[in-house]
């Protein structure tokens, strides 16, 4: 298993979720919406500063990409980013095929892959063995799917994906550090702030 993993990721640096999330947020200049997946992904997004265009999930594991797809369909003029972990994406891999079929030009999926369910006790995910999320995304019809080789490569991919028609997927190997904080826990307030942040009034 270890041999397979090291071959698989030979030239890919193991980075840090909070650091990469800061680098992502620093490159959002057009009020792009960001949907943060449950758990550490969400928490580190929160800890980068509470942009009004961020949506934080407090459950419904696996639905960051479908929620982001919905926002992308409703607002085709706005860039939309789904921030997801490997465990969450594995729970709803089918959503990649739907994104591949619909091919929304304004959608970017970013996967933070620590090869474990860190928050539940660091049990290994299938990416610790042989599953390659970029290959899976490409096979699902998201041709523009790439591994980030290092931090500079991640930044370049983000800038390119935000500038060019998608859908896109970026995956990054990350360490198994927990998040640096946690979100507030008021779902209605989170939704209301997000809707105002993306200019929707009800």
């Amino acid at each position: 298993m270890d041999t397979q993993t090291s071959l698989h990721h030979a030239n890919r640096k193991v980075m840090n979720r909070h650091d990469l999330t800061r680098r992502l947020v620093a490159r959002l200049h057009r009020e792009e919406a960001v949907i943060g997946g449950i758990g550490n992904t969400n928490f580190d997004l929160w800890m980068t500063g509470q942009r009004p265009q961020n949506f934080y999930m407090l459950g419904s594991m696996g639905l960051a990409c479908p929620i982001a797809l919905g926002v992308a369909l409703a607002q085709p003029g706005r860039g939309v980013v789904a921030l997801e972990g490997d465990g969450s994406l594995l729970m709803q891999l089918n959503c990649l095929a739907t994104i591949g079929a619909i091919a929304p030009a304004n959608l970017l999926v970013i996967v933070m892959d620590n090869a474990c369910y860190q928050i539940t006790g660091a049990q290994p995910t299938a990416t610790a063995a042989r599953a390659d999320l970029v290959a899976i995304a490409q096979g699902a019809g998201i041709a523009n799917s790439h591994w980030a080789a290092d931090e500079a490569g991640f930044e370049q991919l983000v800038e390119r994906c935000l500038a060019q028609p998608g859908p896109h997927l970026i995956a990054a190997r990350i360490d198994s550090q927990p998040a640096t904080g946690t979100t507030e826990r008021d779902p209605a307030l989170i939704r209301q702030r997000f809707m105002r942040g993306i200019a929707v009034t009800t």
Binding site: I67, V71, Q75, C95
Partner: peptide
């Protein structure tokens, strides 16, 4: 209609939830 064939019902629920927050009732 924007018509989306989903693979699972919970995926479709996520899409409808996102679309609503983006201003589109589904």
């Amino acid at each position: 209609f924007t018509t989306v064939a989903a693979t699972r019902e919970e995926e479709a629920l996520g899409i409808v939830a996102g679309a609503w927050m983006g201003g589109m009732l589904g």
